[in-house]
């Protein structure tokens, strides 16, 4: 059942280690050629502690933590009826290989449009380095299509 009462719901805290191989695979998949994302020596020479994660990598951390569809599983909604409507990132500090990233997802908004034909769920996940530094806040909008 999906209604306004889901606002405020929180899912299990998670922790993900950002691996070098994963970052390189991600960089190659998006066609990246900048050595900061592919060559650890180049990243260190530029002042980063290791390979740098591209700006949209936070979503891959969410997927690795199995948090991409938590709200859908929780509410018994078929993933195939949903689309990713919007994705936002607010950056505090860069994410690099070797970082252990902690987070927890909260449902922050729920609205219905077109008389309930569209149900729109917004969640937020602040990503925090294990040393306590804020890294990046994600805001995701999932649209459920009915009928």
């Amino acid at each position: 059942m999906l209604d306004k009462s889901i606002v405020g719901r929180q899912y299990a805290p998670f922790s993900v280690e950002v691996e070098k191989g994963r970052l390189r695979a991600f960089a190659k998949a998006i066609g990246e050629t900048n050595p900061l994302y592919l060559d650890e020596n180049a990243a260190r020479a530029a002042g980063y502690r290791s390979l740098l994660a591209p700006p949209s990598f936070g979503w891959a951390i969410i997927m690795e933590a199995d948090q991409g569809f938590s709200v859908l599983t929780d509410c018994g909604i078929d993933k195939a009826r949903t689309v990713h409507g919007e994705q936002g990132f607010v950056y505090h500090n860069e994410i690099c290989a070797g970082d252990v990233v902690n987070g927890r997802q909260t449902v922050v908004d729920y609205v219905e449009k077109k008389g309930g034909l569209l149900q729109i769920i917004t969640t937020e996940i602040p990503l925090v380095h294990q040393d306590g530094r804020p890294l990046c806040d994600l805001r995701s909008v999932i649209v459920v299509r009915n009928g």
Partner: peptide, 10 residues
């Protein structure tokens, strides 16, 4: 990349 503070897309 450090210059980027917010990034979002619909």
């Amino acid at each position: 990349q450090r210059s980027i503070r917010k990034f979002s897309a619909r």
